[in-house]
Simulated scan of single mutants.
Amino acid sequence: MTRTAPPAAARRHTVVDSPCGPLTLVATGGVLSGLYMAGQRHRPAQEEFGPREDRPFQEAADQLAAYFAGTRTVFDLELRLDGTPFQRSVWELLRTVPYGETRTYGRLAEALGRPGASRAVGLANGRNPVGIIVPCHRVIGASGSLTGYGGGIDRKRALLAHERAQGRDASALF
């Protein structure tokens, strides 16, 4: 099923600084619907983000700052996750992977009741529109390898190291 993107007029965006570079936050109808890193694979075109407006993003920016400071391990934000039903089920499952832990694509497929769907889980993972908050960086290959990440393997490695550091200064990790 293909979904049509809402008109840019229904969207707003802002850019916040982070240890892993600028993050573009996008809201659709006032609800966070995107978090994109510079150079990210599957990043929508800039004109799809709508006008820049900082006000509706304060809570998301505050929670991201706390995450990078090591004082927040769970995000508590309303999200609009536009995708196919299967993609949305994968993204909801990603939100249950605990901070500082990892899961394999196969284990996620099994948790969805589709043990042969690890490749499909990987494809849905790669289309996650709200990285970091929906922690797709916590998914690894069956061998424990750091397989693909839309934001780049170096960022994935840094995010995982940050979470394992349990609140120590993360600035040196990125």
Rank of each mutant, 00 (worst) to 15 (best):
T2S: 14
A9W: 05
R11D: 02
H13N: 14
T14N: 09
T14C: 14
V15Q: 14
V16K: 10
V16E: 09
D17G: 15
G21C: 05
L23C: 03
V26R: 05
G29L: 07
G30P: 03
L32R: 08
L32A: 02
S33M: 01
M37N: 06
Q40Y: 02
R41C: 02
H42V: 10
R43T: 11
R43M: 07
P44Y: 09
A45L: 12
Q46F: 09
F49L: 01
E53M: 12
E53N: 08
D54K: 11
D54Q: 11
R55L: 11
P56A: 07
E59W: 01
A60F: 08
A61S: 15
D62Q: 11
Q63A: 00
L64C: 01
A66R: 14
A69N: 05
A69F: 05
T71C: 07
F75I: 03
D76G: 08
L77T: 04
T84M: 02
P85K: 01
V90M: 06
L94N: 06
V97A: 06
V97W: 05
G100S: 06
E101Q: 14
R103Y: 03
G106S: 13
R107N: 08
L108N: 02
A109W: 04
A111V: 01
G113Q: 03
R114P: 02
G116F: 11
S118E: 13
S118T: 05
R119M: 14
R119K: 12
A120E: 15
A120H: 11
V121W: 10
N128H: 03
P129E: 12
P129I: 03
V130A: 05
V130S: 01
V134N: 08
V134M: 07
V134K: 09
P135F: 02
P135D: 02
C136A: 15
H137S: 03
R138I: 09
I140P: 01
G141W: 04
A142L: 13
S143E: 14
G144N: 08
G144K: 08
S145Q: 15
T147D: 12
T147H: 10
T147P: 01
G148D: 05
Y149R: 02
G150N: 08
G150H: 02
G151T: 11
G151D: 08
I153P: 01
D154K: 15
R157F: 03
L160G: 04
L160H: 02
L160Q: 14
H162W: 12
G167T: 05
R168Q: 14
D169P: 00
A170Y: 07
A170N: 04
A170D: 07
S171G: 06
A172H: 13
L173C: 00
